[in-house]
């Protein structure tokens, strides 16, 4: 029989940040305490069995008001998959117009169901000669 052990986490589900205590015997979760709401218990269980994270970054975009398009993951990926996901996103680029929620890459880093999506709409903008610094005299 394995001994009871405990893990301590800080819940990241919302800004309150409840201090959580998870008691387990080997892989068996006995109890979770310290949470203000259900999401805390769910977070601690998830964190114990398969810690997942999400992140945002940008990809280059042409023809838009700025040169970068913010993107995010549609769902969290296993924490150790973050570098691979980041590497895959680094190869992407976009061209305006782009719609909010548009999928740029499916199943990022081989994680089924997690897509890279645009965080905003970026319209195509016309560069008029007076806006283009390279044509300034």
């Amino acid at each position: 029989m394995t001994a009871r052990q405990e893990q301590h986490y800080v819940c990241i589900s919302c800004p309150i940040g409840c201090p959580l205590r998870l008691v387990h015997e080997g892989d068996q979760i006995i109890e979770v305490e310290g949470q203000e709401c259900n999401r805390g218990a769910k977070y601690a269980r998830q964190e114990f069995t398969d810690p997942r994270r999400t992140f945002s970054t940008t990809v280059p975009i042409t023809g838009a008001v700025y040169g970068r398009l913010p993107v995010k993951l549609s769902a969290p990926v296993p924490r150790q998959a973050i570098p691979a996901a980041m590497a895959a996103i680094r190869l992407l680029s976009a061209e305006a117009p782009v719609r909010l929620g548009q999928v740029l890459l499916r199943d990022v880093a081989g994680v089924a169901g997690v897509d890279v999506v645009a965080c905003r709409t970026m319209d195509r903008v016309m560069i008029t000669p007076s806006d283009d610094p390279s044509s300034a005299t």
Binding site: Y9, V10, C11, I12, G17, R79
Partner: peptide, 11 residues
């Protein structure tokens, strides 16, 4: 926020 210390630094 504590959650930012966890997910931005500790991770």
């Amino acid at each position: 926020l504590t959650r930012n210390v966890v997910q931005c630094l500790d991770d």
